[in-house]
Design a protein around this nucleic acid. Structure first.
Length: 640
RNA sequence: GCCAGUGUAGCUCAGUUGGCCAGAGCAGCUGAUUUGUAAUCAGCUGGUCGGGGGUUCGAAUCCCUCCACUGGCUCCA
C-alpha cells in the first residue's frame, strides 16, 4: 500500500502495517515519541493496522491532537484508579479538554475532596507503571449493553442508546474497560507525570434537572519537567488575577455590607474607568453617536412591553413599590427599552437614520450566587451601551463601522489576542426565533459580509444566535485561560416590533427600523478585569492613574522636586512626589511594586546639572536627561 | 441555585490530638536617622478568630445554621 505523508512524499509499506510500524521504519527516535496518527484525516491509534492506501500524519506531543489522545488515555487511567479504590462506582464521560482531562463519576454516597487526590495519583502512577496496553475492541451493541447492565452503570447504558450497532468500540487497559471511540496511546507507560487539579459537581448531560456527578479534573505529561513547567505557569497566571491586583493596586473592593457582586470602585480604579469612558465617548462622537442618559429604574410595564419581565422577571431583583399608588418599578436590567422610548420621543424620518444613541448605562441583574466572580460577573455593572436604529440596507455598513470601532478599542488597550464569533440561528429550528426568514437572511448576510470586508477572521456557530437576532461577539481570555465575552454586536428584530418603532420612508409610508445593540467593552467591570489580567496591572501609560513618581534622595532636594512636579503638570503628565522620610531604595521599591510606570530620582547631581534621573518600571535605570528630553521620551512612550 | 473547599488584624499567613491574657511579617502611628536606584532602626496601635446557635468545666479548634469567598456545573436579556 502507498502512504502519503504531509509533505507530499509517498512510500510503499506492507499492507496492514500500523502507524507505529511505519514510524519505526522512518526513525526509531520518532517511533518512541509518536502518540497518535492522523490517517486519512481521522485520528487513529498508532497500533491500528492500515489496510489500504492512505495519507498519514504521525502526531507527537507538540500536536494538539496528540495531547488530546494522551489526556484521553489519562482519563481512562484515572477511571481505572478510581474503580480500584472505590469499587462499584459508575462512570459518566471522561474527555480530554484544553489543558488535561476530566472524568464524571457517580460515587454513590461517597464524598470526594482534594484530600483524596494524593491516593488517587499514587494509584494512577502504580497502574501507569504496569505499561498496560490500551486495547481496542469492536463489540456488538447487545454485548455492550449486557456488559454495562451487569456492571449496573446506567450512564454508559444511556450513552449506548444513542449509538448504532456495528459502530461501538471498547477500550481496555488492565482491569478497566470503557465504552469509547478512541483513539488512545499504545500503553499507560507513557504517562509519567500526573496531577489532579480540582473536583467539582457536574450535572449529567449538562442538565441541571438531572443527577449531579462528581467531576475530577487532572492533567498528565510525558515527563515531570513538563508538569513542573505547567504548574509554574499556573502560578504565574494567578499573580495576574484581577482580584488580587485589584486589591494590591487599590482599584476596587467588595463589601459584605453593600452586597455580593456589587463592586465599589476605589480612586485608582475609578481613574482608569473614567479614562476609558472618556476615550470611548470621544471615539463614539466622532462616529456619529449621540450620548443620552436614562434613569436606573423603569416601570414594570416597560419590561412587560420589552418581554424581559416574562423571561427574567422571576429571577431578577424584585420590583420596588411606590408608597401610595402601588406602582411597581424595576431596577433596569438593560438600557434598550429606555432607548426605544427615546427613539419614539419624536417622529423619525428615514433621513435621520441611522439614529445612534449611546449611554454608559448601569444595569442590575440578579446573577446566581455561585456565578459571581470578581469584576467579571457581578450584579451591578455599567455597559458601554449604544443602540443603532437603521434600515435593513444600512445594517452592513453599521456593522462594519462597529467592527472598526471595536478593533480600534482593542488595539489601543493592547488586546492582540481575541476571537470573533458569529452566532447564527439554528437552521433546523427556525421556529425558535422571532422575525421573518427574509429579515434573518438579510441580517446574517450583513454580519458575514461585514466581517469579511473588514478582514476580520471569525468562527461561525450555528444555533448560538439570540432568539431576537444574530450577533457577533469578541472574546478575550483571562489569566487562567477562561474565555470571556467583551465586545458584542447584536441585531434585534424583537424590540422594534414590541415597541412599535417606526420611521417615515422616502415613500411617505411607515416602516419598521432594525435595531443593533452594541458594546465594545461589553461592561466596564468585565473589560477592566480582563485589561488588568492582560497587562498584569501594568496599564498603558495613557490610563495609568499615576504616571511618574518623583523620588528625592533626601529632603534637601524637595524644592527641586517641586519644580519638577510643576514641569510635569504643565506637560499634562500625572506625577507625585514621594515625600516620605524613607531611604531611596525603599521609595523605589514601593514605586516598583505599585507598578508606577516611571520614576525620577532626584539628588545632588540632578539639582546641579538641572537634569532628571529616569527609571522605568520593570527595566531599571534609564539614565539622566534634561526636562525637555524627558518630555520627548515620555511622549514617545505614550504613543508607543 | 447545585457539588466540593475556604473564612484568624487593613494585607499575607502561624496557631499541634479542645486547655495560660490569640501570634508573626508587612501596612498604619510616634520617634530616631537625611539617605543615590527593589525593604534603615526602635517603640506603639490594631482581632466579638465571618455572623448566630449548640456540645463542653473550657471552643479559633467539635456539631448545626446563615453569610461571604474559591474552583467547577447550570445560567448569563
Amino acid at each position: 500500500m502507498i502512504i502519503t505523508f504531509p509533505d507530499g512524499a509517498q512510500r510503499t509499506f506492507e499492507n496492514g502495517s500500523t502507524s507505529l510500524d511505519i514510524a519505526k521504519q522512518l526513525s526509531n527516535s520518532l517511533a518512541k515519541k509518536v502518540l497518535s496518527a492522523k490517517v486519512n484525516g481521522e485520528i487513529w491509534d498508532i497500533t491500528r493496522p492500515i489496510t489500504a492506501d492512505a495519507t498519514l500524519q504521525l502526531l507527537t506531543w507538540g500536536d494538539t491532537d496528540a495531547k488530546r489522545t494522551f489526556w484521553h488515555s489519562s482519563a481512562h487511567l484515572m477511571a481505572e484508579a478510581l474503580e480500584s479504590l472505590y469499587p462499584g462506582i459508575k462512570f459518566g464521560i471522561g474527555p480530554p479538554i484544553e489543558n488535561g482531562f476530566y472524568y464524571d463519576v457517580d460515587l454513590g454516597d461517597r464524598v470526594l475532596s482534594s484530600n483524596d487526590f494524593e491516593s488517587i495519583e499514587k494509584k494512577m502512577k502504580e497502574l501507569a507503571g504496569k505499561n498496560n496496553a490500551y486495547i481496542r475492541e469492536e463489540i456488538s451493541k447487545s454485548d455492550a449493553v449486557a456488559y454495562f447492565t451487569e456492571k449496573g452503570d446506567e450512564y454508559k447504558l444511556e450513552l449506548l442508546e444513542g449509538l448504532q450497532d456495528g459502530d461501538i468500540t471498547f477500550y481496555k487497559q488492565g482491569n478497566f474497560a470503557d465504552l469509547c471511540k478512541g483513539p488512545h496511546i499504545p500503553d499507560t507507560g507513557a504517562i509519567k507525570a500526573i496531577k489532579l487539579l480540582k473536583v467539582a459537581g457536574a450535572y449529567w448531560k449538562g442538565d441541571e434537572k438531572r443527577k449531579q456527578l462528581t467531576r475530577i479534573y487532572g492533567i498528565t505529561f510525558p515527563n515531570q519537567q513538563e508538569l513542573d513547567d505547567y504548574l509554574k505557569l499556573l502560578e504565574e497566571a494567578q499573580k495576574r488575577d484581577h482580584r488580587k491586583l485589584g486589591k494590591e493596586l487599590g482599584l476596587f473592593t467588595f463589601s459584605d455590607k453593600v452586597g455580593a457582586g456589587l463592586p465599589l470602585w476605589l480612586p485608582n480604579g475609578t481613574f482608569i474607568r473614567e479614562k476609558l469612558v472618556d476615550f470611548l465617548k470621544e471615539e463614539q462622537i466622532k462616529r456619529g453617536y449621540k450620548p443620552v442618559i436614562t434613569p436606573h429604574i423603569g416601570k414594570k410595564d416597560l419590561y412587560i412591553t420589552s418581554g424581559h419581565y416574562e423571561k427574567y422577571g422571576k429571577d431578577s431583583f424584585q420590583p420596588i413599590r411606590t408608597p401610595e399608588e402601588d406602582e411597581e418599578y424595576l431596577l433596569k436590567p438593560m438600557n434598550c427599552p429606555h432607548h426605544c422610548e427615546i427613539f419614539k420621543a419624536f417622529p423619525k424620518s428615514y433621513k435621520e437614520l441611522p439614529y445612534r444613541v449611546a449611554e454608559f448605562g448601569t444595569v442590575y441583574r440578579f446573577e446566581q450566587s455561585g456565578e459571581l466572580h470578581g469584576l467579571t460577573r457581578v450584579r451591578g455593572f455599567t455597559q458601554d451601551d449604544a443602540h443603532l436604529f437603521c434600515t435593513a440596507d444600512q445594517l452592513k455598513d453599521e456593522f462594519k463601522s462597529v467592527i472598526e470601532l471595536i478593533r480600534y478599542v482593542f488595539k489601543r488597550l493592547g488586546f492582540s489576542e481575541f476571537t470573533a464569533q458569529i452566532s447564527l440561528r439554528d437552521p433546523e429550528n427556525k421556529e425558535k426565533y422571532i422575525g421573518s426568514d427574509e429579515n434573518w437572511e438579510k441580517a446574517e448576510r450583513a454580519i458575514v459580509e461585514a466581517s469579511e470586508e473588514m478582514g476580520l477572521s471569525t468562527v461561525t456557530e450555528l444555533g448560538e444566535a439570540a432568539f431576537y437576532g444574530p450577533k457577533l461577539d469578541f472574546m478575550v481570555k483571562d489569566a487562567i485561560g477562561r474565555s470571556w465575552q467583551l465586545g458584542t454586536i447584536q441585531v434585534d428584530y424583537n424590540l422594534p416590533e414590541r415597541f412599535q418603532l417606526e420611521y417615515i420612508g422616502a415613500d411617505n409610508e411607515k416602516h419598521r427600523p432594525v435595531m443593533i445593540h452594541r458594546a465594545p467593552f461589553g461592561s466596564l467591570e468585565r473589560f477592566i478585569a480582563i485589561l488588568i489580567e492582560n497587562c498584569a496591572g501594568n496599564f498603558p501609560l495613557w490610563i495609568a492613574p499615576k504616571q511618574v513618581a518623583i523620588v528625592p534622595v533626601s529632603e534637601k532636594f524637595i524644592p527641586y522636586c517641586e519644580k519638577v512636579l510643576n514641569f510635569l503638570e504643565s506637560s499634562d503628565i500625572r506625577g507625585f512626589i514621594d515625600y516620605r522620610n524613607e531611604k531611596i531604595g525603599k521609595k523605589i521599591r514601593d514605586a516598583e511594586t505599585s507598578k508606577i510606570p516611571l520614576m525620577l530620582v532626584i539628588g545632588e547631581k540632578e539639582v546641579d546639572a538641572e537634569t532628571l534621573s529616569v527609571r522605568k518600571h520593570g527595566s531599571g535605570d534609564i539614565g539622566s536627561m534634561d526636562f525637555e528630553a524627558f518630555k520627548t521620551y515620555f511622549d514617545n512612550l505614550l504613543n508607543n
